[in-house]
Design a protein around this nucleic acid. Sequence first.
DNA 1: CCGACTTTAGCAACGCCGTTGCGTAATAGA
DNA 2: TCTATTACGCAACGGCGTTGCTAAAGTCGG
Lengths: 371, 371
Amino acid sequence: MADLTFLRDYNEALVMAVARTRPAFERTTIADATGLTPQAVSKVLGRLVEHGLIAPAGVRRPAIGKPASRYELVPHSRYAIGAHVARHTLRLVLTDLAGAVRHSVVTPLPADFTPGTLLDELTAGVDRIAAAHRLGARLTGVGIGMIGPLDHAQGTVRDAHRLRHWHDVPLRELAEQALGRPVHLDKDVTAGVTAEAWRRGPAFRDAALIMVESGVGAGLWLGGAAHRGSHTNAGEFGHTVIELSGPPCVCGRRGCLEAVHDRAVADGDIRAAARVLAVGIVNLVQTLDVAHVVLAGANLLTHAEIYRAEAEAAIRTQVPRADWQTAGITLSSLGADVIAAGAAMQVLDSRYGIPDLAPLEPAGARPPQSG
Amino acid sequence: MADLTFLRDYNEALVMAVARTRPAFERTTIADATGLTPQAVSKVLGRLVEHGLIAPAGVRRPAIGKPASRYELVPHSRYAIGAHVARHTLRLVLTDLAGAVRHSVVTPLPADFTPGTLLDELTAGVDRIAAAHRLGARLTGVGIGMIGPLDHAQGTVRDAHRLRHWHDVPLRELAEQALGRPVHLDKDVTAGVTAEAWRRGPAFRDAALIMVESGVGAGLWLGGAAHRGSHTNAGEFGHTVIELSGPPCVCGRRGCLEAVHDRAVADGDIRAAARVLAVGIVNLVQTLDVAHVVLAGANLLTHAEIYRAEAEAAIRTQVPRADWQTAGITLSSLGADVIAAGAAMQVLDSRYGIPDLAPLEPAGARPPQSG
DNA sequence: CCGACTTTAGCAACGCCGTTGCGTAATAGA
DNA sequence: TCTATTACGCAACGGCGTTGCTAAAGTCGG
């Protein structure tokens, strides 16, 4: 169902998206980018200024005519904290409304840590940051990015890979109780690609974030939104077969990209590993036609330029009609913070981003009679 | 921008989606499935009945209380014609508003046919069907499903694979002029998956249609909509590498799924070919987490059960945690008509399906200041 | 210095959307 | 015949972007 509140929220989110991707802007800019009439811009902008999200920022004096008032996002009006839960570390990042990282801290986690241990570390860290920066009510919520498989819709960790105590843990609910704030839980790679999307604006419609760090995964951003799949477990890119009779993989199959890649790394041949990843990236471009590929992950970033160059060469030479079917390869704009920052931005996105329309209830869906 | 017309169209489309996937329905059904209030259902339904898309269909007498009026879709109130342009044939299909195929006809196309030849055959065929069924104004438009690469947004065929006269042909515009009706142009596989989605209703949110027919391709339906990618060229699934040093492919790479598959077919080992395709399907499920995989294409359907069984076995055994991460494998519900029928349903979908919200203009998108 | 012109911005009335409140129709059962 | 129950529409309402118009704040030419 769509009602007037959806309409309002949607148009406000459009204005926020423009505000976020520009240093400053005028009402005309908004009207052109969104298609709203000047009068509607006036009303929407009025609401956003009233809530403190947007503020006037001087005027521009044109050659003739009345000066145009300029506006800008107020980055410190809202914050979110993101957590990147890895196998041995917890990274906490404070992000403002503009998507800028204001604080980043890494704490070690014990081997085979339990949900309880993580929750203790998480609440302590969040409270410390909230107090130090006097966030108060400006803290919108906390996001958690974690290895899967997990169920984003239910907020449950199904089986954190190679962590013994993490089977069917309702982490979102537990964290909301412990923190007393809204919590978002998502796969690390999906959080990461949200960070890139939030910062790069509406031009970033179809993209993949490739992450190499204790496994190979891909966060997918398709048609302007995160793609999670029907069990919110998309992106298991490392477990796609690229060599039919290749080395056995931990997942039980043979020749998975991750297994072939890791073998090259074990052989000390980073360039060969990068070429393997590049094959996978071209596969992804062929399948999904993404325009942007972002590279991330600790194990990749230590040899960032090798990986980037091999991926770029592969795309240039192996995609047909490369003249018009281009895909840009870049390194993650936030480095090691990208997952945690993305988790934070998911919280901001759910509150200030483009809202979703609820899907229909399938109910007693029967196939129609055939003709 | 979102305005009141979007609101109205969206809610009408929701009601149509419910109507399409059920033999008959009551107002309460709509209210429950859509979240609209009974009063809103009354208004929406009134508009749809007025336009002849929906009609009353008796009453249901409950144990107590006033009988509930029932309604049903009027399948013959709107039609669309779909064309499947293959290398040697043109298939035309007449589809009604319910997604049922009312007529199907195949005509041969000369080797290396030109755009002009196709347009002649197309207009002759469309006019013949429109006259025979007295469609008149009930013919919503014509859809064309074709091998790529092509540009759906611009309606241009970039390079129809192995057709000499098809480079940068503005087929949509040409066909609209020749037919005097709205025309939609899309890749064959995307049209095919639209057919399945249109018929199976809102439960069909994440799916892939795998087509084996003069090449291997995949039509993607992600998050309840067709995924075409940034150059509308997604689905080149046959040109993903699954065997690093495999046989050379026509695309210039080595070990593409299509090359490996075709080698098995050439060897006469269909089961091996099916196993190769199954590897690719598992790759797709791992990457995209689709819940439905539909098999189609002339070359596949002649050995349908072998392909289906191998794919199902692969998904059952090779996807981790198969207990909750399930994906159903089915054969295309429309057989050889699926592409043409899907092209027709794309026309109906663009007119009576869930509308899109226009994306923002990127304009001078600059990355925000960091830190 | 002043009127003509251009551009920006807001006020007020409007049309249309779904919602709310309430009255009415249609049935079964007592 | 009355009551309980369910279905459904009329009318008023609040909120959305739109339209039409006026006011404000500048530049520029005479």
